[in-house]
Amino acid sequence: MEHAEDAGVYQLTEDLAIVLSLDFFTPIVDDPYTFGQIAATNSLSDIYAMGGVPITAMNIICFPIKTMDISILQEVLRGGLDKMREAGVPLVGGHSVEDNEFKYGLSVTGTIHPQKIIYNKGARAGDKLILTKPLGTGIINTALKGGLADENSVAEAISCMSSLNKKAAELMTKVEVNACTDVTGFGLLGHACEMIKGEDVGMILYSSNIPILPGTEDYAMMGLIPAGTIRNRDYSLHMIRRSAGVTDERLLILFDAQTSGGLLISVPALQSQSLLEMLHREGVKEAAIIGEIVAQPKGIIAIT
């Protein structure tokens, strides 16, 4: 692969390639079962983002066995396994090591037709951009860490982070999609920049159409913004032009480092409405058309 992709692809035969990915991280929520679900959902996402079908998974576990109760690990693994079941992916093994800090995730293998791989590059002028999950998990997790997040925000963020991108991936492979990436650590704008960098296109985002989790704006105004989110902004700000109505906080939300975020799909305008309707019908309710790909100015994201 010549540029940063969500997963590695290796072609086996003329009509079969494998897609490989691994991901693991430290707990972001207190409840171990929920953390297991989120970590597994996040690990599976890289395969979905390329239009692949995950077929097997293996556990990656770093656990402080001397200081943490083993029942916590069991609950995390149960959460992970339940998500793998939901995805229809069998757990075929894993590896654990002792570590001072608990970490969990999966190594996932999927399959894909070599001619049907969906890269994060390839968006064309005239495409519409669909985002399948709301933003704000990084900011809400920071508020949660500070004990300032309200129950509703946390519940919505957890539901968002533990929703598989399976349905969205299946549906996007039914239409002619030009590019896709999953929105994770670099935030929506970081991944969007990656989509157009070095390409012959630019992007317009409609700020008011972008779905945002409840409470995110308030927490952003209070300064509950993760360091990673601010780093994302400082790294890619030179590619961003924003209209006067887009506040500093709104911009930071669009750069917010997401855990297990949604798919950002670049789809020809003619098919965008039918894809959006299918997504809504199949339960991907927060999916929205949030922007478009334009010919000019190249390499720039204009936020209106």
């Binding site: 105004m221 209070m222 300064g223 509950l224 913004i225 906080e249």
Partner: peptide, 15 residues
Amino acid sequence: DTDTSKENVSRAAKS
């Protein structure tokens, strides 16, 4: 001692 903290603390005060 970080730029992140400077920015976030300023926001917190204004809020």
